[in-house]
Amino acid sequence: MFNDLSWSVVLDDPGRSFLLHGAWVSLQLAVLAIIGSTVVGTLVALGRVSTAPALAPLRWLLSAYVEFFRNVPLLVQLVFWSFGMFSLDLVRAVAAPLNPVYSNQFLAGLLGLTIYTSAYVAEALRSGIQSVPRGQLEAARAGGLGYWTAMRAVVLPQAFALAFPAIGNQYISATKNTSVVMAIGVTDLVFQAQQIESATFAAFEAYTAALVIFIVICLAESALLALIVRGMLTRIRPGARTAAPAPALES
C-alpha cells in the first residue's frame, strides 16, 4: 500500500538540502530563544523575588509581564511582533544591522518566542528561588555578602538546580514552538517541508521528514537536559535536609 511513496524527494537533493536548511533555521531559533529566555527569565525572577520597597513598581510591572505573555496565544504574539512591531520604521531601523545574517521575520520570531518563553522560565525559576531555604540567604548575608552577591553565589545555583526540571520542560516547549514561526514567513523546517510538498505533491513524505527531524532534535535535547539535571540535583537535593524550606523570601 506504500508503493506510491517516493522517499527520494526528501532523501535526495534538492529536497534534502531544503530540509537540512530548514532544520538549521529551527535549531538556531530554538538555541537562541533558550539562551535569551534563560537570561531574561532569570532577571525577571530576580526582580519578582526582590523585597526592597522601592522596587514595588518593578515587581508589579514584572508580574504584569508574566501574566500578559502567558495568557496570549503564541501565534497571536508572533503575528503582533512580525506584522505589528516590524512594520514600524524605528524597529526596522534598529534591526537593519542584523539583516545580513537574519531576516526581519526571523528576528520577529526570535523576539516573540524569547519573550513568550521567558515568562514561563521566570515563573519556574521564581518557584525554585522560593524553594531554597531562607537560612541560605541569611547565612550568606550574615557573612557580610551583599544581597546580589548572596543571590548569585548561594541562592541562584541552588534555585537553578531545583527548578531545572521545570525550566528544561520550557526549553523543550520552546524548541517545539519554533514550528509556529512558519506562520510569519520564517523559512524554518515546516516551511521547507511545505515547499517540497508544493513542488512534488509528496505531502506525506515531506511532513513525515519534518516530524522525524523534530523528534530527533527534541529527544536529543531531553536526554541532554536529563543529564544536566542529574548532575545538578545530586549535590543539592540531599542538602535540603539541612534546613526546613521557607515559604518565601520576604523582608
Partner: peptide
Amino acid sequence: FVFQHFNLYPH
C-alpha cells in the same frame, strides 16, 4: 553568626 540549622551551602 552560627545558626541552629547550620545553613551550610549544600552546593
